[in-house]
Amino acid sequence: MQRIAARTAWTIAGLLLLFVLIQGFVWHAAYRGAVGLSGDPTAIERLTGPRGSIVALFAHMVTGALVTTLSVIQLAGPIRRRWPRLHRNSGRLLAVAALLTGIGGLVYIARSGTVGGTDMSAAFGLYGVLMIIAAIQTPRLAMHRDYDRHRRWGLRLIILGLGSWFYRLHYGLWFGITCSLGDATCGMGVQSDFSGLFDRIQVWAFYLPYLLVLEWWLRRRPQPVRR
């Protein structure tokens, strides 16, 4: 009993820490997206393309901030067990926000491309498609009471929901490591037009490795008996 209580306490502490860590990204994305939707030209910076695609991208930022926040909440087992209604309602909101986030990102890529070129467009496009699929599958399986597959798709959606934060986290860690070694290595492999080696790796590394690890973990877990 004490072991279970200790594990629960550590889980809650870890989730609280994760929630605090994502706040910088969440508020930056939400604020910049809201400023862009208000029509403030200072939010555009290097964004190019038709106004409709830029509006879609700003909406993508706002809903993406919500997706990142709700992903941590959905990951909290104690909330799911103690307040199942909150879990269900926040899960529905997460699915809708993730669907809108994926669509907004794909609209911008299709109409304006990305600053990083073909590699970034392909990687971000696949990321958006996977998020849309997960956003549809997760609630669909819950409505069909297929809770094992619902949980699997929910975990995939959570990983994708945290992907944008992982992307920024990787850059922060990379600059922290390379700059601590000296000025000559600071930001090695990173270019302003995202053409550096680290940039090209990053566009895939912020979500695919995490999904692969999740799939490996899911396949190692005992499968429930179907009746």
Score class of each variant (00 low, 15 high):
Val20Phe: 03
Ile22His: 01
Gly24Cys: 09
Val26Lys: 04
Val26His: 00
Val26Asp: 09
His28Thr: 04
His28Phe: 15
Ala29Val: 10
Ala29Asn: 02
Arg32Trp: 09
Gly33Ala: 02
Ala34Asn: 02
Val35Ile: 07
Gly36Ser: 00
Ser38Tyr: 02
Ser38Thr: 07
Gly39Asn: 10
Asp40Gln: 07
Thr42Phe: 06
Thr42Glu: 13
Ala43Pro: 10
Ile44Tyr: 04
Arg46Glu: 11
Gly49Val: 14
Gly52Gln: 13
Gly52Leu: 15
Val55Glu: 08
Val55Met: 11
Ala56Asp: 01
Ala59Phe: 08
Thr63Asp: 03
Ala65Lys: 04
Leu66Asp: 13
Leu70Asp: 10
Leu70Ala: 00
Val72Met: 01
Gln74Asp: 04
Ile79Ala: 04
Arg80Ala: 05
Trp83Glu: 02
His87Tyr: 06
Ser90Arg: 00
Gly91Lys: 02
Gly91Arg: 08
Arg92Lys: 06
Arg92Asn: 01
Leu94Lys: 03
Leu94His: 12
Ala97Tyr: 13
Ala98Val: 09
Leu99Cys: 09
Gly105Tyr: 04
Leu106Lys: 12
Ile109Thr: 12
Ile109Leu: 12
Arg111Asp: 12
Ser112Ala: 08
Gly116Leu: 02
Gly116Met: 01
Asp119Tyr: 10
Ser121Cys: 00
Ala122Trp: 14
Ala123Val: 14
